[in-house]
Design a protein around this nucleic acid. Sequence first.
DNA 1: ACCACAGTATGGTCAGACCATAGCAGCAGG
DNA 2: CCTGCTGCTATGGTCTGACCATACTGTGGT
Lengths: 233, 233
Amino acid sequence: MTGTGWQPVRKTRTFEDVLAQVERRIAEDGLTAGDRLPAERQLAEQLGVSRSSVREAMRVLETLGVVSSQVGRGPDAGAVLVSKPDAALTDLLRLHLGLASLEPREVIDTRLMIERWTAARAALTRPDVSVLAEAIAGMDRAASPEEFVEHDTAFHCALAEASGNRLIAAFMRSLRDSLRRYAVEAVVRLGDTSGLQTDHRRILRAVLEGDPDEATEAVTAHLARAYPDLCGE
Amino acid sequence: MTGTGWQPVRKTRTFEDVLAQVERRIAEDGLTAGDRLPAERQLAEQLGVSRSSVREAMRVLETLGVVSSQVGRGPDAGAVLVSKPDAALTDLLRLHLGLASLEPREVIDTRLMIERWTAARAALTRPDVSVLAEAIAGMDRAASPEEFVEHDTAFHCALAEASGNRLIAAFMRSLRDSLRRYAVEAVVRLGDTSGLQTDHRRILRAVLEGDPDEATEAVTAHLARAYPDLCGE
DNA sequence: ACCACAGTATGGTCAGACCATAGCAGCAGG
DNA sequence: CCTGCTGCTATGGTCTGACCATACTGTGGT
């Protein structure tokens, strides 16, 4: 694993073989989140490799949010299959942003794309809007830009959850994590948050009334207000 | 690293400390793709940890598409910073699909979202369409569903590249990799690919004429034809 | 019934060794 | 002077075996 397309003929490393075996076992045995993997020493013996190689494979799986390792003993100890792609996506975005191999504009553009989609979807599914309303109230009470952004994140992530697509929701959470700094900057730059709140209420109203086009329009206007230099086309 | 939000108070493991140090060094020294990291043994000595811990950290960075390790000696040997998020995203999607923690419908929905965005963007930027035309010609020549899907993937990925957003383009490539099986199934199920080709030409025409709304409409109709059971809302 | 304690399986870390690889430096021969 | 071979060396990749901290498990005493 670790990439299907690779031009170099590079010999597969031992830990990659372990990864392939584990993945095969997951597929064949139909393992899902909550199931346990064999212990490291046991797996090493089964596959005829050293524990180091097994550990490196575990590290990869852990990075991808597929397993979680717990020390100690008992039913919850050892390597357990989980489903936490959020951390992996967050790390991915943060590191590539740090490497300057992704520009903020690209990440913010992606966020706009996701927001438009989730808003329209949420308007169609008529979700429970109490979380959204609570987030707006939290922003009203916020005493600092950081606190405002915290509730703002909750609002937009709740919208993403409401869309019913876990992949897109996970992506949204990771994007917000990576963009927290820019979000705070945007709030500070604006100074007044009343315009943003007007947008939030307009989005909430559109979702409540089940009007996907209006919801899309509302989030577009919202992000254009927050990042005026990036949303002009 | 490995996730910013974590409720358990778990003691930071050594390799996580190494990751944090490496990430700090990347940020402080302004390292970018192409720069070299210290050798494993050297890094271990500098940080006062064992080589195993350094290696586990390297495995994480490699999984996230941030470094690439080359054996041997010389300027290209050792751990080099790269920027290859594709493999990481592909592995992420494939594993979570295998774990049944993501359903195909969610991944296909995500694809629809991205396609609509990239088509509209491509129509606005008026890209070089020769690659798109060549992909369509390749599909005309295709002798098998697999070959057809190969050129189809090239077409849609080229559209994503044309949008100018590397993050979204990378996501698109990963989605196509993960969905290859479903794409082939869809082509086989349809039997006749002339309808799909009509769609492709319509998309190309919309991009050529710089009509983003028509481009969006065209890809939506295209995916509705390919996955009729998933695109009804 | 409860509690204290030893047993044990787990992941986490370390030290040290060996291997294959691939560039590099030096030397021998033209 | 140039060319080609050869040994050196730094690199990642792997293995072994050890030790630690942790947290459940079972036992025995109260």
